[in-house]
Amino acid sequence: MSSRILVIEDEARIADFLVRGLREEGYQVEHAADGPSGWVALQHGTWDLVLFDWWLPGEDGISLLRRFRAKDRKTPVLFLTARDGVGERVEGLDAGADDYLCKPFAFEELLARVRALLRRPEQSTSLALDYGDIHADLGSQRASRDGSPLDLTAKEFSLLCLFLRYPGKVLSRTRIFDAVWNEQYDGLSNTLEVHVKELRRKLEAFGPRVIQTRRGRGYVLDASGSDEA
């Protein structure tokens, strides 16, 4: 059975573009044009993915998302908005969005993000991930080590959660880029290395190194191992 997607969008032109395009890709799609009708659909439907617009008549998307997350912590949510400031992105993610796409956007990019969200392990029933003294709460998007909160960016949190889902398994740079950045690794960018270095720094403020380098293969979450780099 194809995935069920709810689109909550008040701009008729964009809504029609999204609904028609996603249906042509084989998804089952329903549309709500404002906050109140969106809330009804969220309460009475079973969805594999929800697309939220920020500005909605009746109730804005942030408020609607917070209410939804109080009841449902696991359904993936993609936020669509013309607001592209860092503060707005952080607010959307903190409210419970799993990903963020700024208007205008290419439909191909939307499809790539939809596919990535639909295949994410977050769709499991677990709301938390743990490894040793490291804890990540998927609902609140917060993490801690040895009881001390970790001040992580959204990407660092996603990176940590990926490692926590596959302890002891070497993850290639290609796989990490696909899961965290929704992009193909080009072999040239040092973005991943910078994020791993910063995540390590924050984790190691409260304990020994747990993210190990495996030369030529990638990274692994292994408290008993050591770097090969």
Rank of each mutant, 00 (worst) to 15 (best):
66 R>P: 00
81 T>E: 12
113 R>Y: 05
68 F>N: 01
112 A>R: 14
116 A>D: 10
88 E>W: 11
158 S>G: 15
113 R>I: 07
107 F>H: 02
136 A>N: 09
85 G>V: 08
99 D>N: 11
71 K>F: 01
63 S>A: 13
163 F>Q: 06
114 V>S: 03
154 A>W: 11
145 R>K: 12
49 L>E: 07
162 L>H: 05
70 A>S: 14
103 K>Q: 10
66 R>L: 09
76 P>K: 01
112 A>D: 01
93 L>F: 11
56 L>W: 01
60 D>G: 12
154 A>T: 13
90 V>K: 06
117 L>K: 05
92 G>C: 11
68 F>G: 02
144 S>E: 14
124 S>L: 06
122 E>N: 11
114 V>N: 01
52 F>R: 02
136 A>R: 00
103 K>W: 02
88 E>Q: 13
142 R>M: 07
155 K>V: 15
74 K>A: 12
74 K>Y: 03
107 F>G: 01
89 R>P: 03
143 A>Q: 04
50 V>P: 02
150 L>W: 02
116 A>N: 12
113 R>F: 02
129 L>N: 02
131 Y>D: 01
56 L>G: 03
86 V>P: 12
165 R>L: 11
57 P>E: 07
115 R>V: 13
117 L>A: 14
99 D>K: 08
144 S>H: 00
126 S>N: 08
117 L>M: 07
163 F>P: 09
153 T>N: 04
131 Y>C: 06
114 V>G: 06
164 L>G: 07
94 D>Y: 09
91 E>I: 12
122 E>G: 02
144 S>R: 13
130 D>H: 15
72 D>N: 10
82 A>W: 07
134 I>G: 00
50 V>M: 00
164 L>C: 10
56 L>K: 06
89 R>L: 11
139 G>N: 09
120 R>H: 13
95 A>G: 01
146 D>Y: 03
54 W>K: 04
148 S>I: 09
67 R>H: 11
162 L>T: 13
120 R>W: 04
107 F>D: 08
92 G>N: 02
64 L>C: 11
103 K>S: 03
142 R>N: 03
140 S>W: 10
58 G>E: 07
113 R>E: 03
109 E>P: 06
135 H>D: 05
129 L>H: 01
100 Y>I: 08
126 S>W: 09
142 R>L: 12
162 L>R: 13
47 W>F: 00
81 T>R: 10
59 E>I: 11
134 I>Q: 04
132 G>Y: 08
117 L>P: 04
148 S>H: 15
117 L>S: 05
55 W>Y: 08
94 D>E: 15
67 R>Q: 14
125 T>V: 14
143 A>M: 06
86 V>L: 15
157 F>N: 08
134 I>V: 15
72 D>L: 00
74 K>D: 04
65 L>Q: 00
54 W>C: 04
51 L>M: 04
114 V>Y: 04
47 W>A: 05
157 F>V: 06
129 L>A: 02
79 F>S: 11
78 L>G: 05
105 F>K: 09
132 G>T: 10
54 W>R: 00
164 L>M: 12
128 A>H: 10
53 D>V: 09
97 A>F: 05
93 L>N: 02
165 R>W: 11
57 P>D: 09
70 A>W: 02
99 D>H: 03
108 E>Q: 14
123 Q>A: 10
155 K>Q: 14
99 D>M: 04
114 V>A: 00
77 V>Q: 02
80 L>Y: 00
121 P>Y: 09
88 E>A: 13
162 L>W: 09
100 Y>E: 05
109 E>I: 13
132 G>V: 08
84 D>A: 14
